[in-house]
Design a binder for these strands. Structure first.
Lengths: 248, 248
DNA sequence: CGGCATCTTGAGTTGGGTCAATGGTCGTGG
DNA sequence: CCACGACCATTGACCCAACTCAAGATGCCG
């Protein structure tokens, strides 16, 4: 993240208090997203920056845990490769978001991190966080908060997967992406998906055909303009209403 | 699952094929479960013990966050009361397990904790954990691990909800309970469910009728003996194989 | 005993999965 | 520059697991 973008993010976060009073669900859906405070301190911690190409594995099951990772640029996905061959995508992480929590419990990563765009990833060494003294006590506190946010996000995701119909899930997914892009100063109406229909479907617990069908339906209803990976949100209000409509 | 599929599972067992000895999925399904080390140290921290009656709310959305809670006796559930009236049960917590992570991020609880049995709950004050010095550094480390485990558990739950059929989910749920009971020295074959069919269904993302039907089916297949809330596991091996069979 | 909540079971419906055919887009090499 | 092939997305037809609605059955408690 360059300085200007960083500044923008900070401003967005600062303004965030007044924004969004109603849609808690969406908030909870956000991946770990450091506060500006933490971001400032993070520079101290970040030791290594790694470039990674789209499609490459960043860490996989069994990789020893060294710390959390911040996405500096690009796009990552975390997937769970189940022993029986099944695969579940747990989340997508964009610029400024933090992933890698799956390694803390066992000291090695349980899941697999894969780039879905050329990306730059910064290591936030865990031992250094752990061993720091009083002066960064607050920083450590933030890490609790990050993890807690991750937990909340997952609960929401569980609810989505457990009891909400596909159209609502996809609408919520799009709004979530939109909001995260907006927070980073990008357009919240023109989304460039960097994941395939299959990846979206896997993440949301549905088949790629279903994703495609719903995109078509939304387009027919005038909610979206869909052209492959370019999605333009035409009726934000309606999409939001749909996303909040959790019972049919 | 039809008779043919059941037969296939049996054949697999005979061939010692899918009887996964390590069974990571189940492990990951466990709620936060402190090590004996941590439990020992916990006594230092625990300040308040509260009794609560079955059905009573322990904390709810908006309750200010004071710390994590350990279940000393009884049974708790955590539910997400969504603004639109919908409700999702996020987890069940039994003796010796820790809940309350949902309050860390915002300093107030996001979810609702309700007793489903008369219970004793111990507060583990958060500020005291935070402010402790070096000597309990390891203790703090354990808390990271607890949270990380909670995250992993939820990812597994997400996978279950997203792409696994109801029978397998219910089988996994029963085995999870069985294992947790066994770890506490109780029988792992005789389960006394303290939650209703509706609560189980809500947690597992299915309707109460579906839960009931599957119980009946499992009984007909000789897997279980079901009498309302008393469940006796008759064929542990087959149930385990079923739980590991994530693709139909 | 009756009233109430929970559980079971049946019948019919449907959302989303499966399978399969077609259409678009993009990168590569002639 | 076009042609080819690989890959991804779209769309249709069909099917089934799980939902809904509804009627009983069972257990619990005053």
């Amino acid at each position: 993240m360059d300085a200007k973008a960083l500044h923008r993010v900070k401003a967005d976060i600062a303004n965030n208090k007044s924004v969004c009073s109603n849609c808690r669900q969406l908030e909870l859906c956000m991946p770990a997203n450091p506060s500006s405070d933490l971001l400032k301190n993070l520079d101290v911690l970040v030791s290594v920056k790694r470039h990674i190409k789209s499609g490459d594995v960043f860490y996989h099951t069994g990789t020893s845990f060294q710390g959390l990772y911040a996405v500096k640029s690009g796009f990552m996905k975390i997937e769970n490769h189940h022993p029986d061959g099944r695969l579940q995508i747990n989340g997508f992480y964009m610029m400024g978001e933090i992933f890698g929590f799956d390694g803390i419990a066992t000291n090695e990563h349980v899941f697999t991190a894969v780039a879905i765009e050329d990306s730059e990833i910064c290591l936030i060494p865990y031992d250094r966080i752990e061993q720091m003294g009083q002066e960064v006590e607050r920083l450590k506190y933030h890490f609790y908060r990050l993890m807690s946010a991750e937990i909340s996000r997952n609960y929401t995701m569980m609810m989505m997967l457990g009891s909400i119909q596909s159209e609502v899930r996809l609408a919520t997914f799009l709004l979530n992406l939109s909001k995260r892009l907006q927070m980073r100063g990008y357009s919240h109406k023109d989304l460039l998906l960097c994941m395939s229909r299959e990846e979206i479907g896997n993440y949301l617990g549905m088949k790629l055909e279903t994703v495609s069908r719903i995109f078509s339906k939304f387009q027919a209803q005038g909610l979206l303009k869909v052209h492959i990976k370019n999605i333009e949100i035409l009726d934000m209000q309606l999409l939001t209403a749909l996303s909040n409509q959790h019972s049919s």
